[in-house]
Amino acid sequence: MTKLQAKNIVKHFDHNGTSVLALDGINLDVQEGDFVCIVGPSGCGKSTFLNILAGLEKPDDGEILLNGKPISMPGPDRTMVFQEGALFPWLNVIDNVEFGLKIAGIPKDERRQISQRYLDMMQLTKFADSYIYQLSTGMKQRVAIARAIALDPEILLMDEPFAALDSQTRDLLLVELQLIWERTKKTILFVTHNIAESVVLGNRVEIFKHRPSKIKKEIIIDYRRPRLAEDENLRKYQHEIIQELKSEIIEQKKAGD
């Protein structure tokens, strides 16, 4: 079943009077339970695309369908894990995780039950009462993931959530995220510019072109899980993606950004 459909998404930005075409007709279907990664050169519009899916930005053209119905507003059915986490420093860990549940009007007991479950899954139980500044970067990303999943979204949107992590923490979270995905059967759309990361996580990797951006190619990764970053058998997929991206990076250089 198709969970999310992006139809011909176009987005311009105004740069000091000149209009820059960031997204030039993105078409993407995401099936229920799928794990889709998006890679592409920096500035090609990956975050913009995710923000449009989340309803945080409006496309100039095209539409987004969730379960076949068009969406326009932000909503807890498409929760996002932001690159920097965007955790709330005035709330402790457990209240951060419960934020959306509280907004949804879920009673306190039930909220606690749900948040405990995800804190547990993320191995954060001991830090439930800590404030955000007391956490390491890796722990913060775990909280951000717990906060997004706790709302039981139709689709989980992740914008380079592991970019700021050291490689050990990242490798650990790459495995954890696969386990969580298998356990929760969530549909995940994951943006990264780390190619190794994309082949470890994705069932499919969508390669974005340099601006004006389109989907250049889709690579299917049919390989057992949980996958490890150092798995030799993933190399050939990585190589394939690098070949596709190389020409884009040359394009990007030519364009001078």
Binding site: N51, A54, G55, L56, M73, P74, G75, P76, R78, T79, M80, F82, A86, L87, F88, F99, G100, I103, A104, R147, L151
Partner: peptide, 9 residues
């Protein structure tokens, strides 16, 4: 953005 994303408006 995070607030809106989690349903606040």
């Amino acid at each position: 953005a995070a607030g809106k994303n989690m349903g606040a408006s």
